[in-house]
Design a binder for these strands. Structure first.
Lengths: 207, 207
DNA sequence: TAGCATACTTACCGTTCGGTAAGTGTCAAA
DNA sequence: TTTGACACTTACCGAACGGTAAGTATGCTA
């Protein structure tokens, strides 16, 4: 199988898994959309589970690469952290299907954990927590507090990303577009405020 | 059907829908867990869809009641808003299944929208946006900015709520417990930062 | 005691699911 | 010219799905 066709199969499969979930998606439907039979798909990926695992794997790698690459090494830590978070937001717009799959995986984890190999959110989260703790004034921020901040920002981004269709149906396309424009502004304010507090010592005294 | 048995059926069904999603859950399995046959369930709720709709309906009503009731009418608006958001967090711990179902519904909306009636997130969101805009100094905060703040807080809460099993498997029960303790502390800080920032920055040319 | 609603059960329907087995056509290398 | 890997297809399989139809035990009401 050439890389091109492989990418094509994975891309189509991804849309199905993202929209319907692992159990809701069927390999027969994916194959039909690709102009193939179900068995042709099973020839390339022995089991449905394997096909899905490859998609998850690619997403994990992209996430880790993202937090690794978006921030410039020369920038001050607070700028680096901000770039990482805003990079996540931009990526969530660029790869909306990935956000859906990640969230579905969080939800299905309990059931699927038996059969599927657990996946690789940890290094990604660790990187973000470390980036926050690298900010001057936050060196001694407890790991659990740093984690909460990171996860709150991440949750804001991902939850908004998966809400696209619902918000559009409630508020209409144009107002949803304004939300999407304003969202990173509020996100940036939140990050900067946090770092300012840390600098001025408020946060430190509070802990 | 008595209210008690009705509640019992809905409660068991809810766990299945929350853990496996609408398509992943099967009425036969739900019935078996209840000690009934599939047809007994279908006797009380004509279709699987109807059973699910009742669960969604109850969740919607609880959410709206929550934002209505948690904040004390006499308190200042900023306190009321803070109480609402923290009330949501507490509720997300008390009813973790509801968070799962809400998030699943956001994800499945695109597919299910054809068959299912759309549901009632809007009044709940409107109430929160109005509560934020009632804060002194934020009366003229644009609705779309207020919405972003509300949705970021909501996303933080719900995303954390559905991540329980995953976080526990990554970090272990004890560290997860610390996250759960620290989370509302950071959440409260986050709320106050949003309000402070909106107040001080709103007049600025930044917007 | 007859009638009737309630709360089920058993039996069955057609469809779809993931997955296996075996066959077919193509095409490049030996 | 044969071999054999590759990329499929057709033909199945058993299991599970949601849903319908028809029958049955129970218990209240007229």
């Amino acid at each position: 199988m050439s890389d091109a066709t492989r990418d094509r199969l994975l891309a189509t499969a991804k849309t199905h898994f993202a929209e319907r979930g692992f159990y809701g998606a069927s390999i027969a439907q994916i194959a039909t959309e690709l102009g193939l039979t179900k068995q042709a798909l099973l020839y390339h990926f022995k089991r449905k589970e394997d096909l899905y695992a490859e998609i998850l794997q690619a997403i994990s790698e992209r996430l880790i690469a993202l937090v690794h690459d978006t921030a410039s090494p020369g920038d001050p830590p607070e700028r680096r952290f901000e770039d990482m978070i805003l990079g996540l937001f931009i990526a969530s717009r660029e790869y909306p299907l990935d956000s859906r799959i990640i969230t579905r995986e969080l939800l299905d984890n309990q059931i699927r954990a038996k059969t599927a190999k657990s996946w690789y959110l940890e290094p990604f989260l660790e990187e973000l927590v470390a980036a926050l703790q690298a900010v001057p004034g936050l060196e001694k921020l407890p790991a659990s507090r740093a984690f909460c901040i990171v996860y709150q920002l991440l949750g804001s981004i991902e939850y908004f990303a998966i809400s696209g269709t619902t918000l559009e149906s409630i508020y209409g396309a144009s107002r949803h577009e304004r939300f999407r424009a304003d969202f990173p502004i509020e996100l940036r304010h939140q990050i900067r405020r946090y770092i300012d507090e840390a600098r001025s010592g408020f946060a430190g005294a509070d802990y």
